[in-house]
Simulated assay, not measured.
Amino acid sequence: MKENRERILKIRDLNISFKTTGGKVHAVRGVNLDLYKGETIAIVGESGSGKSVTTKAVMGLLANNGSIDSGSIEYHWNDEYTGEPKTVDICQLSEKELQSEIRGRKIAMVFQDPMTSLNPTMTIGKQIMEPMMYHYKKSKQEAYAKALELLELVGITDAKKRMKNYPHQLSGGMRQRIVIAIALSCDPYVLICDEPTTALDVTIQAKILELIQDIQKKKELSVIYITHDLGVVAKVADYVNVMYAGKIVETGTIDEIFYDPRHPYTWGLLSSMPDLDTDDDELYTIPGTPPNLAHEVKGDAFAPRNEFALNIDLREDPPMFKVPDSDSHQVASWLMHPNAPKVDMPEALRKRLDKMKQKGEPNHDGSTTHLGS
């Protein structure tokens, strides 16, 4: 763990709900999250677990029927002129302040499908130049020169020609590179990547992940990855937050989550990863389905799907327990209580993790990994 880490984002007790025709949906329930300068955190979990909603709240991009019921999202930075440390609670900002100070300028987002992020009626060049001209009042000539630099940075060849292209004239991988260039156009401190490679084939996916890592090192960006793909997590993350039913149920370093997982849900996620070396004929699946968050969740939300559930799981929601001998590893499970019966992870998963450890995976330094490939 690095010394003197500089915190850039601090989320505390975040609760978000949505008004729907079926009632109020409690999509995010008491999330705590920290992001430090130059580091990468991953938020993983099934669809509907609250991953994207949490990060859209950071951007101030919740849908009209969504609301932050309680909690704070503190953004920390040093003033570019005085060097003085500053803090702002994003939850308290107006739409105008979010638009002018946060979105694109300090925190930028790369979405899952580049075709929904790009304007089909505008040239690529204009879309990259526009944020710079809006936020920093750059002239057309300055914005054009910076746009060419960005296109080269994200690996687009013949940049001058591409500036005149429209999105439909480019491949999926090139469009995603353009979206990354737009996200970087105002030199943000935080980059949020929401399933940035889901719509791409495996070879392009690897190139996009390497590209984001290279840019992160050059610009000392802090990155948040939202994904359900643990193979992606293994390649990129320093820290992992496992989300289930709107809550973070386990958090720790990449090695702690992959080699020493403690929550039964994390066991299920790791067991359900594709593995070329397995002797099993079938891929493991977690039984049951996530709860309907339009109804009140009593006790531990994962209890109905958890074969190791205790009686207390049906009555009380577990707090975060600190894993002994670790400053970073925490688990929201009653199995971590000192008086709980000792339950070990499934033997098949233990063997798989031991095999991964022998191979030196996960190796998120940008080298090749077999996870999820």
Rank of each mutant, 00 (worst) to 15 (best):
S117P: 03
Y259H: 15
L191R: 02
P114M: 07
M59C: 06
Q127T: 04
K218F: 08
V88A: 13
M345W: 04
M59E: 03
N292S: 14
G360R: 11
N363W: 09
E282P: 00
I128P: 01
H337W: 09
L9T: 13
K106E: 11
K2S: 12
D34R: 14
K359E: 04
A309N: 01
L283I: 15
R5V: 05
E307G: 06
S52I: 01
P290N: 04
V110Q: 08
T55Y: 05
N4G: 10
A301V: 06
P290D: 11
L283Q: 04
D13W: 06
E347G: 00
Q141W: 13
L98W: 11
M345T: 04
V236W: 10
D281H: 00
T21P: 02
Y81F: 11
A27Q: 11
K24C: 02
H168F: 14
M132G: 11
L151W: 00
A147R: 03
G155P: 08
F302W: 05
R103Q: 05
I254C: 03
R315V: 06
K359N: 04
E3F: 00
L9G: 11
V233F: 10
D300T: 10
E250L: 06
E6Y: 10
I192G: 11
L148H: 05
S52M: 08
Q169F: 03
T116Y: 02
K96N: 04
S72F: 02
D325K: 15
A303T: 01
Q99G: 00
V240L: 04
A294C: 11
I11Y: 09
V323M: 08
S222G: 14
D229R: 13
C193L: 05
I248E: 01
K37M: 01
T123W: 07
D34F: 13
V58I: 15
L150M: 10
M174D: 03
T82N: 12
E220Y: 09
Y265V: 03
C91Y: 00
S100Q: 12
F308W: 12
G173Q: 07
L335E: 08
D201A: 14
A234T: 08
P318Q: 11
Q127P: 00
D325R: 15
